[in-house]
């Protein structure tokens, strides 16, 4: 059993613990024996080839999917319970955006504070305006999601979670459709959220540079298993010897087939 929940004041950063997690769809098991923890205020990066289960892992962390074995706890509370997420204010940037298609970009951003009445309309306007400017989206405010490019949609998805002022923020490939300048802006944002607000972040990415520049620690997933874990330097740059048996010394560490492609320069 996880330890008793620490006192949950608004500003203590959030801890995530994943223990012996297994996630299955019917008979196919997508994630096996996943154990790690994300320390409060940490930026934790998950890398891995397509189909390795990164999105499934994030969806389990945010409580959209239930583990078939093992547990995910956030500040000691069960992640399957929606109240846990409401208490810590978690948020997820979906890989495909998941914007509200019937609402304008502005209304997408304003949706959370309006629905939860966290601010007055004037404050919401200010906050939404600032966030749009931060992601160079000022001109898109009145557009609808169907009128946006893929990268813009991604930025709106990020903006929408930033407006929520979450304390635990999960990103599913935040920079995948962005140009290098914009990608740098995103990594700056992730970094400053940690520095200023002690936001705990879990970032799924294919972007080696992003991982290197922002990650405190990272894991490498392959076919639903953790094959490497440690600091970015350890995971990305060193040879087999440095693949730490990081969280559980008894974990069965496999040869990461992804290594070869990781050492190549990222495809443009």
């Amino acid at each position: 059993m996880p330890p008793a929940p620490p006192s949950k004041s608004e500003d203590t950063p959030v801890r995530v613990e994943v223990e012996d997690l297994e996630v299955s769809f019917g008979k196919t098991t997508v994630l096996h024996d996943i154990s790690f923890q994300v320390d409060p205020g940490e930026i934790f990066v998950i890398m891995g080839p397509s189909g390795s289960g990164k999105s499934v892992l994030l969806r389990t962390l945010i409580g959209l999917l239930a583990p078939s074995k093992g547990s995910v706890t956030i500040d000691g509370q069960d992640a399957r319970n929606p109240r846990t997420h409401e208490a810590v204010k978690s948020a997820l940037v979906f890989q495909a955006g998941a914007l509200f298609n019937s609402l304008s970009v502005y209304d997408n951003l304003a949706f959370y504070p309006r629905e939860h009445r966290t601010a007055r309309e004037a404050e919401i306007r200010k906050k939404v305006g600032e966030t749009l400017r931060m992601l160079s989206l000022e001109d898109a405010a009145d557009k609808f999601p169907s009128e946006l490019s893929g990268g813009m949609r991604k930025r709106v998805a990020i903006a929408r979670t930033l407006v929520m002022e979450p304390r635990l923020l999960l990103y599913d490939e935040p920079t995948s459709e962005l140009d290098p300048v914009m990608a740098a802006t995103i990594s700056e944002i992730i970094g400053s959220l940690r520095a200023e607000l002690q936001v705990t972040s879990v970032v799924v990415s294919h972007d080696r540079d992003l991982a290197q520049s922002i990650a405190d620690r990272m894991i490498l997933l392959e076919e639903g298993r953790i094959v490497a874990a440690g600091t970015p330097a350890e995971v990305l740059e060193s040879s087999e010897a440095s693949i730490q048996q990081f969280f559980h010394p008894d974990i069965n560490v496999q040869q990461p087939r992804y290594r070869a492609s990781l050492s190549k320069p990222p495809e443009s």
Binding site: L64, P82, H85, K89, F94, A96, A98, F111, H116
Partner: peptide, 21 residues
Amino acid sequence: AELASMKVYQEIDALRTMHIA
């Protein structure tokens, strides 16, 4: 049609992650 499309395009999931039932 509206709810099914919101479900298929993950808008329902997005609502849940925004703590809105």
